[in-house]
Structures are given as structure tokens and as C-alpha cells.
């Protein structure tokens, strides 16, 4: 064990892992975090706290993570290169570890153009792969990016994202290999709706033996409405929503039925990805729909979650 992470322990003990996602509020309301954390508790092994996703200003990931920790959970702090240079990133890495956070996810970040402050200056001093290597060197070499040594290193289980559906497809396995080489302990993928393409990507991952060097969590998400499905299909870069998904939802006769079918579809996808060799768990992104997490995890036969003695 590299860390005290519950997620690491679940994965190392051979369980099929479940991570969730919690979006902090665009306000200083601590109650929202505590409420969402309670919905996820017992249903996931760890949960991501997004870092200004889609470049909209929200409560800091690390602050929300501290509250999640207080609720007895194992938060994964997402950290993007969009808003911080290497100095700020390293300061935050030290800070979250000192606060008792065990996991972080290294991201480049959504471009500021998509958010509510498009006039902001993007930082992008490092990219996600350079961030991974920097955090790994802080943990394993006790060195800052400049080479200076530190007395007490951050003990973090280090994650990264990968999108099997972005272009060029032929680079998506090599890119994963770079992230593994740079220091990723676990990977969370983009949301999967195109299972064939995901399976093809996983084959490439296995051919290079990468599934033995990194834990891969397949990204899944329930679809709430037809509008959301169409939006993801046509407007969200890097998303692959096949026509068959839209058609399945179209067969539903009411809004409630569509949501129900969206949940069923999510459960089906979880069961299918679980059959794929090399998939070590799922990352369930029920964003602003956290209340359906227990139902989905239960229907996918993933309850109860493993509990370890301290």
C-alpha cells in the first residue's frame, strides 16, 4: 500500500471498485456537500470532487473534500492545470495530504472558454502528464519539480483520466501508457455509451499489459432525459453516444419512463464493462442526480461495498 486510501485498499484486495462523483455548489453552502456525501456514503469506495468542472466557478475541490472526509468518506481531489502553475499545484498537493486526503486526480482541465468566466487567462503551465510525474516524484522521491528535497512527502493515491472516444483513436492507448509511465496508479475513463469502441480500446490496453500496471475504472453515467442524451451526442466534445442509445430512450413513453430507462441502461453498461478483462471497477458520474446512486449500484449487484478494519 502506497497510501491510506480506501480506494487503493479496495483495488489491492481484488474487489471490483466503485467510485462516485460529487460536484461542489456554485456557492458557499456547506450543506449541499454534506447532503450529497450522505447520499454516496456506503455506496461508493471513494468519490471525486470536481475542480471547477466546465470552467464554472464552484467551491474549491480540496475544501469540499475536507467536508466529505468529515462525513467519513474517502474523497478524490480533482486538480486541474487550468488555474494553477506548478508552484500553486505543489502547494495544494502538500496541503491536501496534510489535511488527510488520500487521493487526487490529475487533469489538464476544461478550457476556460466553456465556463462562466471566458475572459479568464488560462494557466496551463503543466499538462496532466507532467502533473502526474510531478506528484509521483513528490511522493516517491520526496522532491519538488525543481529538484529540491522535502522532509515529509505527500502520501497520495494518484489518478488520471483517459478518453477512449477522442481522436486520434490510435493514440488513446499510447496516451494511457504515457500516463502510467508518468505515475498514474488508477485511471477513470470518459463516460462509456459505445461499448464496442471501449472493448476495442481495452484490447489495446491488454495487448500492452497496461491493465497490470494501472487500475482502470470504467466511466458510466445514467441519462436523465432525451435532451441530455442528444446534447451529449452532438455538443459535448469527446463524447460518443451511439444512435442505439437514443433509440432505446425514445421508446419510453413519458419523462419518468425515459429516466427509468436511463438508469436501466446505466446498469446494463456496468454489467457489460465488468465482463471485460482488465476493468478493475467503475466510476459512476451521476452529476446532479446523486440520489439514484444507491439504486444503480444495488441493481448492478455491487452492494454492499467492502469495509476494512482500521
Amino acid at each position: 500500500m502506497k497510501t491510506k486510501s480506501n480506494l487503493e485498499r479496495v483495488l489491492e484486495s481484488g474487489h471490483f471498485a466503485v467510485t462516485g462523483e460529487l460536484g461542489p455548489p456554485a456557492s458557499a453552502d456547506a450543506g449541499v456537500i454534506r447532503k450529497k456525501a450522505k447520499l454516496l456514503k456506503g455506496n461508493v469506495d471513494a468519490f471525486n470532487i470536481t475542480d471547477g468542472q466546465t470552467a464554472v466557478v464552484r467551491m474549491a475541490s480540496w475544501a469540499a473534500a475536507v467536508m466529505g472526509k468529515e462525513e467519513g468518506m474517502d474523497p478524490i481531489v480533482q486538480m486541474t492545470c487550468r488555474d494553477r502553475n506548478r508552484i500553486a499545484l505543489q502547494m495544494d498537493v502538500l496541503g491536501i495530504s496534510a489535511l488527510g486526503i488520500n487521493n487526487m486526480l490529475c487533469l489538464t482541465g476544461d478550457h476556460q472558454k466553456f465556463g462562466n468566466h471566458p475572459a479568464a487567462r488560462g494557466v496551463y503551465d503543466l499538462d496532466s502528464i507532467q502533473l502526474l510525474r510531478m506528484v509521483r516524484d513528490m511522493r516517491d522521491e520526496k522532491r519538488f519539480q525543481c529538484g529540491d528535497e522535502m522532509a515529509v512527502e505527500p502520501r497520495l493515491f494518484i489518478g488520471a483520466a483517459e478518453n477512449p472516444f477522442a481522436d486520434p483513436f490510435e493514440f488513446r492507448v499510447p496516451r494511457l501508457a504515457k500516463k502510467v509511465e508518468a505515475g498514474a496508479d488508477f485511471i477513470q475513463t470518459q463516460i462509456i455509451y459505445n461499448l464496442d469502441k471501449f472493448a476495442e480500446w481495452m484490447k489495446g490496453v491488454r495487448d500492452r499489459g497496461l491493465h497490470e500496471r494501472v487500475k482502470i475504472l470504467a466511466g458510466v453515467a445514467p441519462i436523465k432525459s432525451l435532451g441530455a442524451a442528444r446534447y451529449m451526442k452532438t455538443r459535448v466534445p469527446g463524447m460518443d453516444v451511439p444512435d442505439s442509445v437514443i433509440e432505446r430512450l425514445q421508446k419510453a413513453t413519458s419523462k419518468e419512463q425515459v429516466s427509468r430507462e436511463g438508469i436501466n441502461l446505466c446498469v446494463d453498461i456496468i454489467k457489460r464493462v465488468r465482463e471485460i478483462e482488465g476493468v478493475a471497477g467503475i466510476h459512476l458520474m451521476a452529476i446532479e442526480w446523486e440520489e439514484v446512486v444507491p439504486e444503480i449500484i444495488g441493481a448492478a449487484d455491487l452492494l454492499p461495498r467492502p469495509v476494512f478494519a482500521e
Binding site: 489538464t108 478550457h111 496551463y124 496532466s128 477522442a166 486520434p168 504515457k178 470518459q190 466534445p237 469527446g238
Partner: peptide, 25 residues
Amino acid sequence: SKNLLNGPCGGSQGGKCEVDPDMPC
């Protein structure tokens, strides 16, 4: 758009940059 030095991000699609559909990746 993000000064990436290690290959395309997850927003590269159809040869275009996610930030501007008129801009090549």
C-alpha cells in the same frame, strides 16, 4: 489551446479543437 506537450487532450474530435470548431487540433 492548452499548450499541451504530450499529445491531444480528450477534446480532440474529427481533427478539430474543442475550443473552436473552425480550428484544427
